[in-house]
């Protein structure tokens, strides 16, 4: 795998993750929030839950998915990092 392939794979990963990022916050929390409010999750209206709780859990998961995916990608290309460069 060349460093160009690495960058392309990274960009693809980024677009997928940022799409999810946009959907769970701006999508479910704002644009479709009122529509989702007709469903409920326990005592929460679903749109309200996304706006005040769900999007934040989603953000945390997204970052760790990226951390893990990049770990494997870097293994594949065979990069070993050095400290304090």
């Amino acid at each position: 795998m060349s460093s160009q392939d690495y960058w392309k794979a990274n960009l693809k990963l980024l677009s997928v993750l940022l799409f999810v990022w946009f959907i769970i916050s701006f999508g479910f929390g704002i644009i479709f929030s009122e529509f989702l409010d007709q469903f409920s999750l326990g005592g929460f209206k679903l749109g309200f839950w996304f706006a005040q709780q769900g999007s934040i859990y989603g953000f945390v998961i997204l970052i760790f998915v990226y951390v893990i995916a990049m770990h494997f990608l870097e293994k594949k290309i065979g990069i070993k990092e050095e400290e304090n460069e």
């Binding site: 460093s3 690495y6 960058w7 990274n10 990049m70 870097e74 990069i79 990092e81």
Partner: peptide
Amino acid sequence: GKMVDKIRLP
């Protein structure tokens, strides 16, 4: 361009 290429690799 070279500098950008460098920072794109970990």
